[in-house]
């Protein structure tokens, strides 16, 4: 198991003093034809690993649970981001796993995920399943759906 963005990286990226305008840190995920941003303050770390596959039919709050992931003495259910945004699953060869701070879930993301500072004040409303808004052409995931 390998840590990609540790807690410190997520925290530093979250500083809002680098720009003259306030920014927030996001995990930006490149999907097939969309880019999604996940506020990094919700996550404790991002890891690269192979989770334990769950038998078919296992679910977490109604979403398909792909497997379980162990990190620092806690087991996290794994759900793919496409489950939350209602898209068709697309197979990627490589994945990352973003672990929620409250230890309730590991979100499976395509490998094409990076940390970025975005001007959160620019967020505009959008009518899209799973989205809270849009910053430029990037959709912002509604994290409330996971609470």
């Amino acid at each position: 198991m390998k840590e990609i963005f540790d807690a410190r990286a997520l925290e530093l990226a979250n500083r809002e003093t680098r720009e003259s305008r306030p920014t927030s840190s996001f995990l930006v995920v490149d999907m097939e034809d969309q880019r999604w941003a996940l506020p990094s303050r919700y996550f404790s770390t991002v890891v690269e690993t192979t989770p334990l596959e769950c038998p078919r039919g296992v679910s977490w709050r109604g979403y398909r649970c792909l497997g379980l992931l162990c990190w620092e003495l806690s087991a996290y259910p794994v759900v793919d981001i496409v489950e939350l945004i209602g898209e068709r699953p697309v197979h990627h060869s490589d994945y990352l796993f973003a672990l929620l701070r409250d230890k309730s879930l590991a979100l499976r993301l395509p490998r094409k995920t990076s940390l970025a500072e975005l001007f959160h004040e620019d967020m505009s409303p959008v009518q899209q399943s799973g989205a809270k808004g849009k910053i430029g052409d990037i959709l912002v995931l509604d994290m409330e759906a996971l609470r």
């Binding site: 379980l68 992931l69 087991a75």
Partner: peptide, 28 residues
């Protein structure tokens, strides 16, 4: 084996009582 409590998931066999890391692999 050091086992971790299972998270709240539905429809998993009731025989599973935890997960553990074994030889760099996660197991039921």
């Amino acid at each position: 084996i050091l086992g971790y409590a299972l998270p709240s998931v539905s429809h998993l066999s009731p025989s599973a009582f935890g997960v553990a890391s074994w030889n760099a692999e996660t197991i039921f």
